[in-house]
Every structure is written in C-alpha cells, then in structure tokens.
C-alpha cells in the first residue's frame, strides 16, 4: 500500500481543473454555434454579430494561456465548415487577429473597461478588413464592404454584454476553482 500523499488533488479539484482548462474553448465553440442561430430574424434583420471574435479577443486579453492558438484555429475552422464559405477564411482571420491582440495585450490588460472595449473595436476593424481583403482576392472582384462593416459594427456594439457574461463565467469557474 502506497503511503498517503497529503497534497494529492482530490477528484473534485481535478474535475475542476479540467473544467477550467476546457471552459474557454467550450465557450468559443458555443459562440460559433450561437452565431448560426437566426437571432436576427426576431428583428427582421439578417445581421448577426461575430460571437467567436468576442471570445477570441476576450480570452486573448484575459487568459491567453487558457485559449491557445490551437483553440483559436479550431474555433475558426468550425465556423468555416458551418458557414459554407471559404475553408480557412475565418480560421486564418481569427488566428492573425489573436496574434496581433496577444502582442498588444499589455496595453489593455489592466486598463478600465472602456479601453478594453476600444481595443476590441480596433481588433474587430482589423479582422473585418483582413477578411474583406482575403475574400476580395479569392473572388477576384471588389466585394462590397458594406456588409462586413455592418457585421463588425454590430459586434462591437454588443461586445460589452458578452464581455460581462464571459467575466461572470470566468469569476465563477476559474477563480472559484
């Protein structure tokens, strides 16, 4: 019989740790699914915010070690597979945006929420512009940029609600664990 190890984690704490590791990624996946739910139909408008981008930005700033590049890539790829558009478009855009956000992380990490939000506006603008350029090159035509601008504007507008929601979940699961 092995001797008792007083500091070995209990099953509950181990489960908690697994949840902590997986939770941001799971939120990313839920965000992908959520962006295909036709919420816009309630208001009679086809506009849907880029929910995965919010998750990518939030975790890249708050806890990049819990949302690794592989998770960003998977979230983007799943979005591409579900959307029926170019394969790899949003995977590419999200990974590049994530890389940019992670390098600029120190600017907003302990700043007030308004800075966090302004940072997101920049990130969304960057992601939208990048996606627009890639799509225009792929199709070989000047794709009208209005729809992507609207899409990103809606995303930035609703970001505080989701950032608050992510914050709540983080406080409950991560700090509680």
């Amino acid at each position: 019989m092995a001797k008792l190890e007083p500091y070995s984690p209990t099953p509950a704490s181990r489960a908690g740790r697994i949840v902590m590791t997986i939770m941001p990624f799971a939120i990313g996946l839920v965000c992908v699914l959520f962006s295909f739910v036709p919420i816009g139909r309630i208001f009679g408008s086809p506009l849907t915010p880029a929910f995965p981008l919010m998750a990518v930005y939030y975790w890249a700033i708050v806890r990049p070690e819990m949302f690794p590049p592989l998770a960003v890539f998977t979230v983007g790829l799943l979005f591409d597979l579900l959307s029926g558009g170019e394969i790899g478009l949003w995977a590419f855009v999200y990974v590049v945006t994530y890389a940019v956000v992670v390098t600029q992380r120190m600017l907003v990490v302990n700043a007030p929420f308004s800075a966090f939000w302004i940072g997101f506006a920049f990130a969304a603008g960057f992601a939208g512009a990048l996606a627009w350029v890639v799509v225009s090159i792929i199709h070989g035509v000047f794709v009208p940029p209005v729809s992507v601008m609207k899409h990103m504007a809606v995303t930035v507008a609703v970001f505080p609600i989701f950032a608050m929601l992510f914050g709540r979940i983080e406080a409950r699961v991560l700090q509680g664990g």
Partner: peptide, 12 residues
C-alpha cells in the same frame, strides 16, 4: 430554416 448565414461574405 434552422440557421442563419454566419459571416458577412456568405448568404446561405
């Protein structure tokens, strides 16, 4: 119709 288009560059 069970899903929205998802993304500003595809209308499916």
């Amino acid at each position: 119709v069970v899903s929205d288009s998802g993304g500003p560059f595809v209308d499916t």
